[in-house]
Nucleic acid binder design. Sequence first.
DNA 1: GTTGAAATCGTTTGGAC
DNA 2: GTCCAAACGATTTCAAC
Lengths: 146, 146
Amino acid sequence: MEETDQAIVAALAKDGRLSYTDLAAQVGLSVSAVHQRVRRLEQRGIIAGYGARVNFEAIGLPLTAFVAIRPFDPAQPDDAPEKLAHLPEIESCYSVAGEDFYILLVRVASPSDLERLLAEIRTKANVTHRTTVVLSTPFEQRPPRI
Amino acid sequence: MEETDQAIVAALAKDGRLSYTDLAAQVGLSVSAVHQRVRRLEQRGIIAGYGARVNFEAIGLPLTAFVAIRPFDPAQPDDAPEKLAHLPEIESCYSVAGEDFYILLVRVASPSDLERLLAEIRTKANVTHRTTVVLSTPFEQRPPRI
DNA sequence: GTTGAAATCGTTTGGAC
DNA sequence: GTCCAAACGATTTCAAC
């Protein structure tokens, strides 16, 4: 990727609501030039979208956990992501190397909600799990240094 | 939090570049009313900011890993987050319950960059680590169901 | 691929309910 | 707290380089 595009992506990763006017000033281009470049970055999927960074405690989801899962029966097909995608509590799903097959990042309102969610994950995806509760988040989702 | 505010946060988590005009239509309010509410949500820290969702492979950071760390000497002060915050490869830092003290989510360009980063984490924070490489990401950073 | 200008549209403010 | 309306600023398009 080109240097100018890198600067654009970095700036929008840090502040997704930057106006094209401000963005143009930051990268030293005209407004229409940055606008065109951003559109291309979006079309090529380099910028996949935009989102508000929300305070999960404030919106009633104060409990975050990592859930490492592996198939109960390793002989069966490994389609956990499709089977779990409909659960909105699962924010992210990573396929990983190692003993576990997937690591899930989940957000729930309470320990009992976590308990219910884990039961659903177990039965829906036919897996065993090892869950690590997050106590606090010193920092999260920092923009990448490109 | 109120129902209308929940709808606003949910909409902006899904699409952080929604115009106030579209947002007002979605939640059934006037433009100035949603505008005022969004400003208050930002001031109260419920909306902490906005960011572009970037394709890390496309921007030259195709390797993601979880790094679980624990102090080499449990008697020493536990200030890993401050000591690691300056490393831009570390996207997120979670304090967790269990054997490990922190779980880090890191993004690097290559295995050798990961090797260098792990060495830095070890020496800077005086910790041992257990690293889990991400093979693929079925889904990530989905907006929360509020 | 970049520019500048023009038309359109959204944002933002202030006052009234 | 919500709404309307007016002034302002940004977005988007287009022709030209």
